[in-house]
């Protein structure tokens, strides 16, 4: 496991902030926008972890298909 611990913290930070934004927006009665913000944050986080997921799939492939 040589992955950057920073990434985890980053994702956690985004999660916290987006949760706060969601709450604020919801309180002001703009739930629609709140949902969109959450969705957007999800996509951004997904983009951040895409490399890691790619790595995961590569590893699985190399384990089961004995490639490399």
């Amino acid at each position: 496991m040589n992955y950057d611990v920073n990434l985890i913290f980053q994702i956690a930070g985004v999660g916290i902030v987006v949760a706060m934004i969601h709450t604020v927006l919801k309180q002001m009665g703009k739930e629609e926008i709140a949902h969109w913000v959450t969705l957007l944050a999800f996509v951004i986080v997904l983009y951040m972890v895409v490399n890691v997921v790619d790595d995961l799939f590569q590893t699985i492939r190399s384990v089961f298909l004995f490639q490399n």
Binding site: N6, Q10, G13, V14, V17, V18, M20, I21, V24, A41, I44, M48
Partner: peptide, 11 residues
């Protein structure tokens, strides 16, 4: 919060 979010993503 928006500013905070942006810095977190960019770091």
């Amino acid at each position: 919060l928006g500013g905070l979010l942006m810095t977190i993503i960019l770091i």
